[in-house]
Amino acid sequence: MTQEAFGRKAGFSASHVSAVESGTRALTMSFVRGADRALETGGFYERLVTRFGAPSWFRPWLDAERAAIQLCCFHPNLIPGLLQTADYARAVLRLAPRLTDDEVDERVATRLERQGILTQGHPPQLVAVVNETAIRQAGEGCAKVMPEQLLHLHRCAERPNISVHVVPSSAGLHAGLSGPLLLARMADNSWAGHLENQLGGTGADRPEDLDTLLERWESIRNEALPSRQSLALIEEVANSWI
C-alpha cells in the first residue's frame, strides 16, 4: 500500500504519513486509530499501544514533547526523566511497589528512548530546574547511582541545547514546592503543559492554566542559581559521593 493510499483510508495526507514514518512528526493516537481503519485490524494497534505504550494520561504530553522547540521542566525532588541515567530511572521506578522487574525494565527502556529527542538533528532547547534536594537525596544502595547520575547531568548541561539550574536550599519557600511541572513551546509559539501527581498526571492546555504555569515557571526560574554556579554545585555534590 502506498503512502497516498494508506493516508486516504486513514484520513491523513501522504506527506503526513511520510513525516510519521521518518520520525519528524509525532505518532498520535488519532494516527494509530487511522492505521486501524486503513488496515482493517479491528482496533488491534490501538489496543497494542494502550497495553504496551505509555499510560493514556501521558501520551498527550509525549506528543507535545516530540513536537516542541523548547522544553521547560521543574521537579522539586527528582532529576527530570529526560536527563536520568538508566540506573537512576530504575531506582525511581522501583519505588512503585506493584511494578514487576520486567515492567520496570520496560519503563526504563521507554524513558531512555524518549531522551533521543535531545540528540536528534534539530533538538529542542531544554531548560531543567531542580531543587537542591533532588541532587542530594538518595535511597539505600544509591552510593554508586547518585554520582553517576550527577556526572551525567553535568555532561548533559554542557550540550548547547541543554541548561540545568538548581534552586538552592537557602531559597526557602518558593512556588515550585507545590509540585513538578512541564511546559513545551511549539513552532507556532503555542504552549502545552503537564502536571504530575501520585496517580499519574494531567495535561494543561487552557489559556488561563498555561498563563498560571508560565508565571509559576518564571518564579521558580528566578530562584535558581545561574548555570555556572549550578554546575559547580552539582559537581561538588557528585564528588562528595565518590
Score class of each variant (00 low, 15 high):
33 R>L: 14
172 G>P: 00
95 L>I: 13
213 L>M: 09
35 A>D: 01
57 W>V: 10
67 A>L: 04
138 A>Q: 08
127 V>T: 11
35 A>Y: 00
223 E>R: 03
64 A>V: 04
213 L>C: 08
162 I>K: 01
36 D>R: 03
229 Q>R: 13
182 L>C: 07
183 L>Q: 06
163 S>Q: 12
118 L>F: 06
85 T>S: 11
229 Q>D: 15
101 D>M: 08
4 E>N: 11
128 A>Y: 01
135 I>P: 00
164 V>M: 10
104 V>F: 06
171 A>Y: 01
67 A>N: 03
189 N>K: 01
3 Q>E: 10
38 A>F: 01
181 L>N: 00
43 G>T: 11
43 G>D: 09
223 E>H: 02
66 R>M: 08
228 R>C: 07
17 V>I: 10
146 M>P: 00
9 K>A: 11
26 A>W: 04
194 H>W: 10
124 P>K: 00
240 S>Y: 05
97 P>Q: 15
51 R>W: 02
113 E>R: 08
148 E>K: 02
44 F>Q: 10
139 G>Q: 07
137 Q>V: 12
161 N>R: 10
87 D>C: 13
173 L>V: 04
132 E>M: 03
166 V>W: 00
177 L>F: 07
196 E>R: 05
222 N>H: 11
84 Q>E: 14
3 Q>F: 03
236 E>W: 04
102 D>A: 11
177 L>N: 09
179 G>E: 03
104 V>I: 12
205 D>E: 15
166 V>M: 01
229 Q>V: 09
77 N>A: 15
114 R>S: 15
169 S>I: 11
199 L>R: 13
199 L>F: 05
142 C>H: 13
190 S>E: 14
220 I>S: 00
199 L>C: 11
100 T>A: 15
147 P>V: 08
103 E>M: 09
147 P>L: 14
222 N>L: 09
77 N>C: 13
120 Q>V: 05
155 R>Y: 04
11 G>P: 02
35 A>G: 05
219 S>C: 05
74 F>G: 01
195 L>I: 15
130 V>C: 05
158 E>I: 06
202 T>L: 14
77 N>E: 03
198 Q>W: 08
220 I>R: 00
55 P>L: 15
66 R>S: 09
211 D>T: 14
87 D>N: 09
195 L>R: 01
74 F>Y: 15
235 E>K: 02
55 P>A: 15
143 A>V: 12
176 G>Y: 00
160 P>M: 14
161 N>W: 04
136 R>E: 03
56 S>H: 09
113 E>Y: 09
26 A>V: 12
173 L>S: 15
42 G>P: 02
193 G>V: 01
152 H>W: 07
89 A>S: 09
101 D>K: 05
109 A>N: 08
28 T>L: 05
212 T>P: 00
75 H>P: 06
111 R>D: 03
109 A>S: 08
96 A>H: 06
212 T>S: 11
48 L>V: 13
93 L>R: 05
225 L>S: 04
